[in-house]
């Protein structure tokens, strides 16, 4: 035993010498990271450049002067504006459905520990693991065949909700798992009705998550393309409209929208990350 306790001193001597190696590989890793970020950001930068380029087709290389024309034209484009309106309607509908559904699923699942719970869980998260177009297809078929409802805004709300509610549910479950289950019991024990406990204890606890989940549901719905493509029928959202114009690559207006999207993303991402950091 004594001999062994002496050994680490010797070993740690060799480690220190060894550590110069990994430092070199750390630099390599940093270099790789830099390269990766160039790979991730360069294409987006081209999109931004083309948005301010006077050239009539989106181009980052054929510079024909600075212009804000493509931004100015956006409000005049009725199809874009109409699409934006559709997107907002759909996203609001998705929030209104996803939050109650996600909450209900989370409440059931956190209280069901048996194998029934596992089956229910698998069913409720399955939409996340299913390709978006399949969700679009099934929603479109189902509502037309059973209710005579043609694909449109309403079917899109249903298609989005089917998987966005799963995301919301997972967020609520994570939050509920951090809740001391005896909080609700304590409320009941003090003579409160279950409804009173729910309103006064459970909901306030979940409120921050309800807000973030609403935000996530909004973004997921607003940005969705693959599911919407099938579920929307002859109507359109901002994103499907952008998609169909991208296929033709006709006007830098889509770059202008892209710049707005990227700007919003940057603002949200930075504030969110900084807020998360402050909380930690």
């Amino acid at each position: 035993m004594t001999a062994a306790t002496d050994m680490p001193g010797v070993v740690s001597g060799t480690i220190r010498r060894r550590k110069t190696g990994p430092d070199w590989s750390g630099a390599l890793l940093n270099g790789y990271l830099l390269l990766f970020f160039v790979y991730m950001f360069l294409p987006l930068i081209f999109v931004v450049i083309a948005a301010f380029n006077a050239a009539p087709t989106p181009s980052a290389t054929d510079w024909q002067g600075f212009t804000l024309r493509w931004f100015m034209e956006l409000p005049q484009d009725t199809r874009f504006i109409q699409g934006l309106w559709h997107s907002l309607i759909i996203a609001s509908g998705v929030i209104c459905l996803s939050i109650p559904l996600g909450l209900s699923g989370a409440f059931l699942l956190t209280r069901l520990q048996s194998s029934a719970g596992t089956i229910l869980y698998t069913i409720l998260v399955s939409p996340i693991l299913v390709p978006g177009i399949v969700l679009g297809v099934t929603t479109m078929i189902f509502w037309r065949d059973y209710f005579g409802l043609q694909a449109g805004l309403l079917t899109t709300v249903f298609a989005h909700t089917s998987f966005i509610a799963s995301y919301c549910m997972l967020m609520f479950m994570a939050r509920l798992q951090r809740q001391d289950p005896s909080l609700e019991e304590a409320g009941l024990d003090l003579g409160a009705t279950p409804l009173f406990v729910f309103r006064r204890v459970t909901l306030p606890f979940l409120m921050p998550t309800i807000l973030t989940a609403s935000g996530l549901a909004f973004l997921q719905s607003f940005e969705n393309y693959n599911t919407t493509f099938f579920a929307i029928g002859s109507s359109w959202t901002l994103v499907t409209e952008i998609g169909s114009r991208m296929r033709f690559g006709l006007s830098p207006m889509i770059n202008a929208i892209g710049v707005i999207f990227i700007a919003l993303t940057v603002i949200i991402a930075v504030t969110h990350t900084l807020m998360a950091r402050k909380r930690a």
């Binding site: 991730m40 950001f41 987006l44 999109v47 940005e223 952008i242 998609g243 892209g258 999207f261 993303t265």
Partner: peptide, 15 residues
């Protein structure tokens, strides 16, 4: 990582 992740899928493709 978050900025390109949260940028719209179509935008990443179009870029």
């Amino acid at each position: 990582l978050v900025i390109p992740y949260a940028s719209n899928e179509l935008l990443r493709i179009f870029s």
